[in-house]
Design a protein around this nucleic acid. Structure first.
Lengths: 226, 226
DNA sequence: GTCTATACATGGATAGAC
DNA sequence: GTCTATCCATGTATAGAC
């Protein structure tokens, strides 16, 4: 409506920003299945053709929006993640983050992009990059938190961070079809985290026993059978 | 082409079966974003309008196909799951199942439906039901496997089964954008499973210590702060 | 350089043929 | 009862206006 109020179009950068915001909202609110140049442009309040002018294709717009959005989100939690000192604190922050970000639909964006990227390889790099931002944060916290534990040096932190991040996405998707079930799953993980807390507080004798057994490798390598 | 070779149309049941198969293949090969009455019918080799005649809508067809497919899949693994006796065996079977089902695109079907169900509530019940079949199997195995562990009675098995199943889906999606990362995540989980194996083999004294600590509840309940 | 109007393709749903 | 031909809505992409 009131278009000339502004200093006219400062530059197309404004349109680009609108489109990226619109892409994120559309992904979160309508899902990858309903995403199109039209639906995004409608959310952004601009002409549909601008998607192709500014980004070349819908996929390119989604990729740009993904990187943009993930950076914003991660930055918002970095300080608090830095302050986490134990596994249960991590899980507590994880639950809060889960609730907040889910409410705002930000995890949903990653989940929808992951689903889309399975059969649209052009989406994969940006999606992996967006998820990698979270993975890196989680990894830093894990390294710090596991240091006080017999697990330090035993568990591969980068691998565990990847497992945690992707499990988080899976839980988000599950919550979308069974909210009670997802809450129950989170509670069970809380309980399990207690197991590691127990290790932190174990006496030195028991710790040595655990450490020795871990080193012997009862588990930790299921491959190499035949 | 050769249509009259058969006893003509035995019944529409054949068409229904073709459509459900086509729906599963289309979901796996093209993703929820590309699923349509047309794309499914093309895969099934039938006229597109039959989707609406036999199922009323694409969503109804997807729902029917989901239940159908999940039952087939789970039945195929039930016997082997029954034979699992330890957590590392469970993870080993899990990895094999992961590889096989991923190759055939069966986990992908659930993942894509979960993504679609987030914004298409009509898909949610069938998707939850399909996932529930897996969850129930996992839960039965967990109850049996954890019985030899200090965790028995401490961890909520139904909750843990839900966490495992949804994490599995998340890993599948992650693998689609970063195969190496997903393998590393699986390896890390192998290592963690060793932690529980350690508990199984711990001496009675250490076991009592762990059990006592668990009961005291260092972790296990992050809520109820204020 | 930025954007819109238009052209052509694909998807959803059903009236009516068999 | 089973299926197909057809209609209208939605999606993609670009030629050309500003």
């Amino acid at each position: 409506m009131s278009r000339g109020t502004r200093t006219a179009t400062v530059t197309g950068a404004e349109t680009r920003a609108k489109l990226m915001e619109g892409a994120l909202r559309t992904l979160a609110e309508q899902g990858i299945a309903k995403v199109s140049a039209r639906s995004i442009a409608a959310t952004a309040g601009v002409n549909q053709g601008l998607v192709f002018y500014h980004f070349g294709s819908v996929d390119e717009l989604l990729s740009a929006a993904c990187r943009h959005g993930a950076e914003q989100r991660v930055a918002r939690y970095r300080e608090r993640l830095d302050r986490v000192r134990s596994l249960s604190e991590l899980l507590e922050l994880g639950r809060e983050l889960h609730a907040t970000e889910r409410a705002e639909g930000n995890v949903a964006v990653l989940a929808q992009l992951l689903a889309g990227a399975q059969n649209q390889p052009r989406l994969a790099p940006a999606t992996a990059a967006g998820l990698a931002l979270w993975i890196d944060e989680i990894e830093r916290v894990l390294v710090r938190v596991l240091a006080d534990t017999p697990l330090a040096g035993f568990v591969d932190s980068p691998g565990l961070a990847r497992a945690v991040a992707s499990a988080f996405v899976g839980l988000e998707l599950y919550e979308g079809v069974d909210e009670d079930g997802a809450l129950r799953a989170l509670d069970a993980l809380d309980q399990l985290s207690g197991l590691v807390s127990v290790l932190e507080g174990l006496g030195p004798v028991a710790q040595r026993a655990v450490r020795a057994r871990l080193r012997r490798g009862t588990g930790g390598r299921v491959r190499g059978r035949g």
